[in-house]
Design a protein around this nucleic acid. Structure first.
Lengths: 226, 226
DNA sequence: ATAACATAGTACCGTACGGTACGGTACCTT
DNA sequence: AAGGTACCGTACCGTACGGTACTATGTTAT
């Protein structure tokens, strides 16, 4: 009998809440990510088991069901996608600009990469039917995380007298738009041609130039937020 | 025998190439679109037949297979999504600005709407596994179509001495970024809160203001493209 | 040593769905 | 009236897949 407390002595093998997935479990998640990149959402649990050399039963014991497996993979990987960092020490206009350009370059590289695209595609597929929280997770680790990282930087820039703005959300949205532009949606819709490093760099430099025209104080009268 | 020309006298009931889908066929496609909005990609052929009050056999006779049905729906609908128009007659700075703002408002409304989101989500899901051309179709009717409509407008603006730029692709990308910003990706990832009309208007006005700062000639020294 | 447990491998079950076949009906043409 | 065509409704088939059960093989703890 399934619910019998005397027979039901199995220990709990699902992901450890505090330590996160074990080494072996992470191997499995890596395999899942590979399959995501290769086949989108169309891989089966059997194919995961095959790829990871584990049994299906183990998958279910560890992750509950398919959704749990996807969620664990996205959760682990979304935060792992090499996200740009900005050095808070530097504070001259030139170093500030350099920092923003570097951030922009990394960002464009990430969103036009296969891993990020696969995660977003999967999350978007699932978001449409509201069955899982993958969309939320990716949103939280993508755009929202970028906002979290950038906003303090903008504030530093303002404190240093380099830029000015009223609304932190608005300035973030401007930066987002100028940097990401249509790169992401084109990639998500399957456009094959990835931009060259040169193309990415040019876009980033131009985006930051424009951003500083709009919000920089050195560029005199141009700021509409005064 | 299947290929026997004498026995194989059936007429071709698939979509007429020159006239497009018949009225009845369009009814079916409308039902499919509704299901797309409601359930994403997870509706079955049986549910389509039920909703459209037609037989599955008819679906297959008309559209070949599930992919054909999806393609027909996306193809018909993607171009139908109420896309902003710009009046080419007016040519003063203020009317030019008004035109750009109106276009931006419509655009944001479209991409944050359920129909557009459903089409993009479906196309993105299918793009990941490269099995169908839905991504291409949506890309062609979305971003690429916007570019086709906007570029001549920009050229008009340049001819009228209102804006200046070197590269038509670059100026389009700037406009795209400032207007679309993160609205679309957030919607695609399932963010529930739709922006208010006021919020959309504000964004559009701000985007165009910034756009004109970057590219307008009246705004003096600010243009980096001189 | 031996008992308890974890895991790989595999067989199996139920179901959902894409696709096909067929009977019945309405309409159109001759 | 008779034949043909298009269509609806439904039953059916094969397959793929999520999920479960069972066995065999270590591995660890006592």
């Amino acid at each position: 009998m399934k619910g019998d407390v005397f027979l039901d002595q199995q220990t709990d093998n699902s992901i450890n809440a505090e330590n996160g997935p074990s080494a072996r479990q992470q191997e499995v998640l890596t395999a899942v990510l590979d399959l995501m990149v290769e086949e989108g959402d169309r891989f089966s649990m059997a194919s995961v088991a095959r790829r990871a050399s584990c049994s299906k039963e183990t998958l279910y014991k560890w992750f509950g069901d398919r959704d749990g497996l996807l969620t664990a993979t996205v959760q682990r990987q979304a935060s792992k996608v090499a996200m740009p960092e900005l050095d808070r020490q530097e504070i001259t206009l030139e170093s500030f600009r350099r920092g923003l350009v570097g951030f922009a370059i990394s960002w464009i590289q990430v969103i036009t990469g296969d891993v990020s695209a696969a995660l977003n595609q999967l999350a978007i597929s699932h978001a449409s039917s509201g069955k899982s929280r993958l969309g939320e997770i990716v949103l939280n680790n993508g755009p929202s995380e970028m906002a979290r990282r950038l906003k303090p930087i903008f504030q530093l820039g303002r404190d240093a007298g380099l830029i000015q703005f009223d609304n932190i959300d608005t300035i973030f949205r401007s930066y987002f738009g100028l940097v990401v532009a249509d790169w992401q949606i084109r990639k998500l819709l399957g456009e094959k041609t990835r931009p060259s490093s040169k193309g990415i760099e040019d876009t980033a430099v131009r985006a930051v130039d424009q951003f500083l025209i709009l919000y920089g104080v050195n560029e005199k009268t141009n700021n509409i937020n005064v």
